[in-house]
Computed example of a mutant assay.
Amino acid sequence: MTDARKPLKPIKGRGAASRVASRFDATAVEGVDDGWGSVYDEIADAPRPATTVTEERARSILTRNTSPDVGFSQSLNPYRGCEHGCVYCFARPTHSYLDLSPGLDFETRLFAKTNALERLRAELAKPGYVPQVTALGINTDAYQPIERRYGITRAVLELFAETKHPVSFVTKGALIERDIDLLASMARDNLVSVHFSVTTLDNRLASKLEPRASAPHAKLRAMKALGDAGVPVGVMVAPVIPMITDMEMERILVASYEHGAREAGYVLLRLPNELKDIWREWLELHYPDRAGHVMSLVQQMRGGKDYQAGFGTRMTGTGVFAQLVEQRFRKARARLGYGRFPALDTRRFIAPRVPSAQGSLF
C-alpha cells in the first residue's frame, strides 16, 4: 500500500517536496486512505506553496561560534529560512526551533530581521567591542530573492563599510552584483572577500537541487564582475554529492578560475538531523535508480551512518571515497594555480556613534 505521507511528485520551484516533521514535534500527522484515494489526490493536486515573510525584531544580531571547522568566529544573518530552496542545505534543521518544518516551511516561511541595522550599530558601538571578520549571511543566504524587497543586507553592509569593519560572504545569489560599489571600495582596504557556492554547472540539475538560487552561469558572471572590480573572489564546490555532482568538481574549478576565482574550497554533503529525511525523499523522487548507491557512498564517508558531526571530519568525511575526493580537489587546485587570500584587516575599525538624546557636545 502506498504511504500517504510520501509525495507523489516534486513541486516545481521548490527543493523539498513535503513538510518533513520537525524533531521537536510533540505529535505526528499521518494521512490514512479511506478507500476513495482522497489522501493521494490531495497530495498530487496540492497548489504550489507561496512564500510568506514575517518581519521580526531581533534581540541581538551577531552570532559567535568556536567551531574549528569554519573559517570565522562571528556571523550575521539578515534572514531566517531561505527561498533558494537548496534541498541539501545544512541550515534547514534550524527551522525546527521555530516549530516549523525543515522541509517546505524552511523555503516558504521566511523571517526578515528588520531591525538588523539598528542592532548592529548598537553592538559595534559597545566600548568593549573587538572587531573580527564577520561572515554575512552564512546560515541562510544574505542575497536570497527577498533581499531585493527588504535590502537588509545592503543596509548592514553600508554600516560595515562606514566603520571599516571586515566581512566575508559565501553566497549562491548573483544579486551580490548590486553591491559592487561597496564591495570594491572595501576591497581596496582589504576588508572583504566573497566566495560563490557552486554545486553544479548543469542548469537542469541546479533547477532540482537549488531551484531559486542563481543559475550556474549567473554565478560565474557575478564572479567575474566582482573580480574585475578588484574584489577577492573564491569558489566553494559545495556540497560535493557522490554520484550526483562529484564528477563535476574539476570542471567547476576550471570554470571558476576562468571567471576570476583565486581561492577554492569544498565541502562534502552533510545530512544533520531532519535533513537526512528531506534528502532521501528528494533522491527517491529525482534519482530513484541510484538512490541506494548514493546513500551507500554517503554512509561509507560517514562511518556507516547518514552523518557524523565530529569536528575535523564533518566537512570532509572519512574513508576511501572521501580520500579520493580530497586528492582530486588538491591536485586540481594546485594545477590551476589557486592560492590563499591574505587575512582581512581588523585594524582599521572605527566604532560608530550611537544617537543620543543629549546630542553631541563636539
Score class of each variant (00 low, 15 high):
57 R>H: 08
62 L>R: 14
60 S>E: 10
71 G>T: 09
39 V>L: 10
85 G>R: 11
93 P>Y: 01
107 E>H: 00
83 E>G: 13
116 A>R: 08
109 R>Q: 06
105 D>L: 00
74 Q>R: 15
26 A>L: 13
97 Y>S: 05
44 A>M: 12
42 E>I: 02
66 T>M: 12
54 T>Y: 03
26 A>I: 08
108 T>K: 02
35 G>K: 01
73 S>M: 04
60 S>D: 04
94 T>M: 00
71 G>N: 15
84 H>V: 07
84 H>G: 10
42 E>Y: 00
88 Y>G: 04
88 Y>M: 03
78 P>K: 13
25 D>C: 13
27 T>V: 12
49 P>M: 01
68 P>L: 11
56 E>I: 13
79 Y>L: 05
87 V>Q: 04
107 E>Q: 02
88 Y>A: 05
62 L>C: 10
47 P>D: 14
30 E>W: 11
42 E>A: 13
96 S>I: 01
43 I>N: 10
74 Q>E: 14
40 Y>P: 02
33 D>A: 08
59 R>G: 15
87 V>N: 06
88 Y>S: 09
54 T>C: 11
33 D>H: 05
29 V>W: 06
84 H>D: 04
66 T>C: 06
53 V>S: 09
123 E>T: 12
41 D>L: 11
68 P>V: 15
98 L>E: 02
69 D>A: 09
24 F>N: 06
79 Y>V: 09
116 A>F: 06
68 P>W: 04
69 D>E: 11
67 S>N: 07
25 D>H: 13
123 E>G: 11
39 V>W: 03
101 S>G: 08
35 G>R: 01
114 T>N: 09
101 S>K: 11
111 F>A: 05
29 V>Y: 12
105 D>A: 05
120 L>W: 06
85 G>K: 12
48 R>K: 13
106 F>R: 03
107 E>W: 01
125 A>K: 10
105 D>T: 08
80 R>V: 05
93 P>V: 01
66 T>W: 10
66 T>L: 15
80 R>S: 03
50 A>S: 14
74 Q>I: 06
95 H>E: 01
103 G>W: 00
121 R>W: 03
98 L>W: 00
37 G>N: 01
104 L>P: 10
80 R>G: 00
91 A>T: 05
90 F>Q: 06
59 R>D: 05
121 R>Q: 14
44 A>E: 13
116 A>D: 06
26 A>E: 07
83 E>Q: 09
118 E>W: 06
61 I>R: 13
30 E>L: 11
38 S>L: 12
50 A>E: 14
117 L>W: 05
86 C>T: 04
114 T>Q: 10
